[in-house]
């Protein structure tokens, strides 16, 4: 009886209400952290953050850092995507390619990009170039693996069905393999964007002149905690916004799927 009533209450609060409560809880936790002597050093409360917004806008660095980071992310991701698609198809179609390439993709994929950034900088020099290269590499790896799975997963009876309806090799690719792979391509894009953002901070760790990641380190050096926390929150907002947009795209384009994978 009691449980029933509780369940009724849980269901009666709309999603927006829960979101609001969740937000309140976070603010409360943040407040508690900010008044504690130790954690308060890392978590200045909302008024300090608002002041920090003022500061970074006045200094003109917020826009500069944001644009710089986004250029690196977009370029790195774009290169990653246009190279991952053919690589994934080559791996799926020519088994020798898969046998030779895949172990190394898996190997490198498990190395945190932060580890090899200095190596890239040595060859590529400082500035944007190493950032783009590192993001390219990281997104290429994750997207190749994901799209490759998709091509391998294409239901063989669909290919047979298309063949007996008169499909030639070219038709098979355009009308069966490509649409069947679309959900995996979109998943790859979502994972790729997420990896691009997480890699960005590592990519900007050496020799960057602007960017969200570079600025966080420079704030850290000058003990400017509030702007640092502000930037961290902003990175989170960018991440979740892009994920939401891509998920919406996924629903739009692959609503025909029986079940949706994560």
């Amino acid at each position: 009886m009691d449980e029933k009533k509780q369940k009724g209450l849980i269901d009666r609060i709309p999603n927006a209400g829960w979101l609001f409560l969740s937000f309140l809880a976070a603010i409360l936790l943040w407040y508690l952290l900010s008044i504690n002597e130790k954690t308060g050093r890392s978590f200045p409360f909302v008024p300090s953050i608002l002041k920090a917004v003022q500061t970074v806008v006045d200094r003109g660095i917020l826009a500069e850092d944001f644009i710089s980071s986004m250029i690196s992310v977009v370029l790195g991701f774009a290169f990653g995507f246009v190279t991952a698609v053919p690589a994934a198809f080559l791996m799926a179609w020519y088994r020798p390619v898969q046998y030779i390439v895949e172990p190394w993709i898996q190997f490198i994929r498990n190395i945190p990009p932060l580890a090899y950034v200095p190596l890239v900088v040595i060859s590529a020099g400082v500035g944007r170039k190493p950032q783009v290269i590192v993001i390219w590499l990281a997104t290429f790896l994750i997207m190749t693996v994901t799209i490759y799975q998709g091509v391998r997963n294409v239901d063989e009876t669909l290919i047979k069905a298309a063949r007996v309806l008169g499909a030639k090799d070219k038709d098979l690719f355009v009308k069966v393999i490509f649409p069947a792979t679309t959900p995996f391509i979109l998943t790859a894009v979502r994972l790729g964007v997420s990896v691009a953002l997480t890699t960005l901070i590592a990519a900007e760790s050496t020799g960057a002149t602007a960017g969200m990641g570079m600025r966080i380190r420079s704030f850290s050096n000058s003990f400017e905690v509030a702007p640092m926390l502000l930037y961290i929150i902003l990175i989170g907002i960018i991440g979740i916004t892009s994920e939401k947009i891509i998920k919406m795209l996924e629903r739009r384009l692959t609503g025909w799927q029986e079940k949706r994978e994560i």
């Binding site: 009876t157 047979k160 069905a161 298309a162 069966v176 029986e258």
Partner: peptide
């Protein structure tokens, strides 16, 4: 020669 498969084999995106 047309074929009907046990698993229907409809194109789910169409």
């Amino acid at each position: 020669r047309g074929v009907v498969f046990q698993q229907y084999a409809l194109f789910p995106w169409l």
